[in-house]
Amino acid sequence: MKAKITITLKDGVLDPQGKAIERALKGLGFDGVFDVRQGKEIELKLDETDEAAARAKAEEMCRKLLANPVMENYAIEITA
């Protein structure tokens, strides 16, 4: 199965990269852009056939390494 893990900064955590992107977008003439936040996406394949088992494994990976709960949230999407 495939797991797509989206990691985003928690609300209230300063995101200078998002701010720089926002400034660049405004510089290009995109008015009305605000609250730009940059995250990351990790894709991986798992040799699991059961969706619940794959999700549990991805959860554990997020907790142990992929995300830092001090500053980040994560969302997991499992597909065949």
């Binding site: 955590v13 300063l14 200078p16 990269q17 830092n68 001090v70 500053m71």
Partner: peptide, 17 residues
């Protein structure tokens, strides 16, 4: 040390990048 949980908090990207 922060990532290992021996100290609280985290070190983010510098505010001015």
């Amino acid at each position: 040390l922060c990532e290992a949980g021996l100290l609280p908090g985290a070190l983010l990207r510098n505010a001015e990048l």
